[in-house]
Design a protein around this nucleic acid. Structure first.
Lengths: 191, 191
DNA sequence: ATTATCTATAGATCTATAGATAATGC
DNA sequence: ATTATCTATAGATCTATAGATAATGC
């Protein structure tokens, strides 16, 4: 097959990152096998090290890239002109909690345990921390821009923790009560 | 060394389960290596299969056993005669969110991702689901028994999701804001 | 000449099994 | 005789590296 040109090689690199992102959302770091990811990206495992220093480096980059994707998604949907501004928060929360294919699961839930481990690379820990920060900032912006939301600054922290927790509980138990309960909570704090 | 008697063998088995419980709390299923667990329990890996069918069987049992331990802990602290009944929920939440050694972390946070995976054994999935149910029931009992709590039935689901989410976020990011924010929320809903 | 990719493999785990050993319990 | 434990190892991964191959880009 031989060598790709620069443009193609960059696209290949991005495909590796995207596949790692999808795999991580589906099952955390344990779900990422380099030979597997490379095969899905259409290459063999030997080529991996032309693009990344190590598996840890890939995981950290997939984390950053994935959080950026989620933030873009939140913002694009919140700013959509097809929806009224009123009730935007409630709709965003409902979408966040809706059942989705595993490869589109929330990265916070998917990587939380891996990022917490002492064994985790500093790069992953930093990327995770930064990603949570950005996603929370986006959540906060949506809440502030929605005139129907009555959440105070103090309540936003608890509300964000609640949607993350409900998402994890719903995914792990298969019980829709957790999502429904948190949506009810949000409905009660909007006018 | 030769064979242990029945009583000793049962104690050995329980030590294996307890070590698996501690390892799982520290880092999920990925943190459990049979040779490691057996060494910590004072045996060699070959002896493992006298006690368990497979690693999956051990994980599922560690999950059940661990949740039972957490439920006992919640109840023992909530019913302690040394503390007033008023404010019990707030104190229990503060204790739940307090920093603890990794091997005492919350099993919901530790095993959530593993239980959600398609790859997870049905035994683990069931044990997790059952454990969450019991822990939530205990949380609810504490809330109902505390005259200072103003949580409605509807709010309890969201409140439980919030403490679980805050615990995960706090552990994974190292940021105390999540625990503090949720504690503030509980303080605001008590009289 | 450089380098992106492939083939092949070394080295490190980790689960599970087979067979030996020695104490238990009938 | 039974069985809890140990030693040793088979078999399956998985990360990372070494060296070959072939297309790129100067």
């Amino acid at each position: 097959m031989g060598r790709s040109n620069r443009e193609q090689a960059d696209m290949n690199r991005q495909r590796i990152v995207d596949q790692a992102d999808a795999a991580v959302r589906g099952g955390g770091v344990a779900a990422v096998s380099i030979s597997d990811i490379m095969a899905r990206a259409g290459m063999t495992q030997g080529g991996f090290y032309n693009h990344f220093e190590s598996k840890d480096a890939l995981i950290a980059e997939a984390c950053s890239s994935g959080f950026a994707r989620s933030v873009r998604n939140w913002k694009a949907r919140a700013q959509s002109k097809r929806q009224p501004v009123v009730g935007a928060l409630k709709r965003r929360v409902a979408y966040y909690l809706a059942k989705k294919p595993v490869e589109q699961s929330c990265l916070i839930v998917a990587l939380g345990q891996d990022a917490a481990r002492h064994h985790a690379s500093p790069a992953l820990h930093d990327a995770f921390r930064e990603g949570v920060e950005q996603l929370f900032a986006t959540f906060r912006q949506v809440a502030l821009a929605d005139p129907s939301s009555t959440l105070s600054e103090d309540e936003m922290t608890a509300a964000f923790a609640a949607i993350v927790g409900a998402n994890m509980l719903a995914r792990a138990t298969g019980d829709g009560r957790w999502s429904a309960g948190v949506e009810t909570y949000f409905a009660a704090r909007s006018r």
